[in-house]
């Protein structure tokens, strides 16, 4: 049906695994994003012909507003803009963006229940986990786009 493994013998990304160096991170979400991207694109040994920089911009929306005006669902909308460039000349080979969202709950405490589910610590940890999941999703989408469009930006395979 025309699908061939990208890293296979006739693959469009043959020889590309471990050839893309992800730029170093500057903050905690960036660390997770860079770790996921580098893991999926293959660890680099020595110099790599391609450099990949990715900037993520996240904004928050409050949803699930209760009659008491309490925000019980927070959605993190992330937009990643990337730049794949030739590491020797620095020239841009492909740029673009991917976007997605993740959410976490900040539930209201109900006096009837003893377990304090939605306290500030459980919500803070849930938020950090949501950020980590968002970075993973954006990294997967970016890798998928790069692999799918490899023939367009990669030039003749060796």
């Amino acid at each position: 049906c025309g699908f061939t493994p990208v890293y296979g013998p006739q693959g469009v990304a043959r020889g590309l695994y471990g050839q893309i160096q992800v730029a170093p991170p500057r903050d905690v979400p960036g660390y997770i994003l860079a770790r996921e991207l580098q893991q999926r694109l293959g660890l680099v040994d020595g110099a790599a012909p391609y450099d990949l920089t990715a900037e993520v911009d996240v904004n928050e929306t409050g949803l699930g507003i209760t009659p008491d005006q309490e925000i019980t669902r927070i959605r993190l909308q992330g937009t990643l803009s990337y730049r794949l460039s030739d590491s020797s000349t620095g020239a841009a080979i492909r740029t673009g963006s991917v976007q997605n969202f993740t959410s976490y709950s900040a539930p209201v405490f109900s006096a009837a229940r003893q377990s304090i589910a939605g306290n500030s610590v459980t919500v803070a940890v849930a938020e950090e986990d949501a950020v980590e999941r968002l970075m993973t999703i954006l990294a997967d989408q970016l890798v998928a786009e790069l692999l799918a469009t490899a023939p367009d930006w990669r030039g003749p395979t060796p």
Binding site: T102, T122, I137
Partner: peptide, 9 residues
């Protein structure tokens, strides 16, 4: 306590 399930995990 606050568990989520999406493509991220």
């Amino acid at each position: 306590i606050l568990v989520e399930f999406d493509e991220g995990n």
